[in-house]
Design a protein around this nucleic acid. Structure first.
Length: 156
DNA sequence: GCCAACGTTGGC
DNA sequence: GCCAACGTTGGC
């Protein structure tokens, strides 16, 4: 299976790319996703080695902050089982987990954040989900061509 | 802080 | 199974 590419959103006030960078091994479980489409990508499609555009949402400006990679394929999100946890979901239990996550490892923090506004006006990125109005999905597939364009922008 | 977009819930 | 109400996301 060829390497695939993704964009994952995180609020930098909560967990930004610098937080990922500082984790042991630069690795963090991507817990707390409670959306079925995003869940399905993590549970069914994401594989170790896949590339991740680390996107800062709800920030000023929003944009792509750097690169990461998937290092562990989908497995049950344990925060859903913990009543004390903010992401607790009584409808998910270990015998039949509802929510899944992957582990993500930091690869590279761009020297500059690539603002959403720049993505919008960059040729070749017109079809990215993140530039489309009303698209809120926090885990999105990205094409190899889009990955390469964004990666190159990050080197500028 | 506003609010459009959109996913989820629940009454029927 | 429809759809109105509601809650959340996330850019602005």
């Amino acid at each position: 299976m060829a390497r695939r590419y993704w964009l994952m959103k995180s609020e930098p006030d909560v967990f930004g790319i610098h937080d990922l960078e500082r984790r042991p091994g630069g690795t963090e479980p991507w817990d707390g996703v409670r959306n079925y489409q995003a869940r399905n990508f993590m549970r069914d499609d994401m594989q170790p080695g896949d590339g991740v555009l680390f996107y800062h949402s709800n920030s000023d400006p929003p944009g792509v902050a750097g690169l990461a990679e998937v290092v562990r394929a989908g497995y049950p999100d344990p925060t859903a089982f913990d009543p004390a946890h903010i992401h607790y979901d009584a409808k998910s239990d270990p015998a039949s987990p509802r929510w899944f996550m992957v582990d993500v490892r930091h690869l590279h923090t761009f020297a500059r954040l690539i603002p959403l506004e720049e993505l919008r006006r960059t040729p070749g990125l017109e079809d990215m989900a993140v530039v489309r109005k009303g698209q809120r999905l926090s885990v999105q597939p990205v094409t190899a061509a889009e990955w390469e364009i964004v990666r190159a922008l990050g080197e500028r």
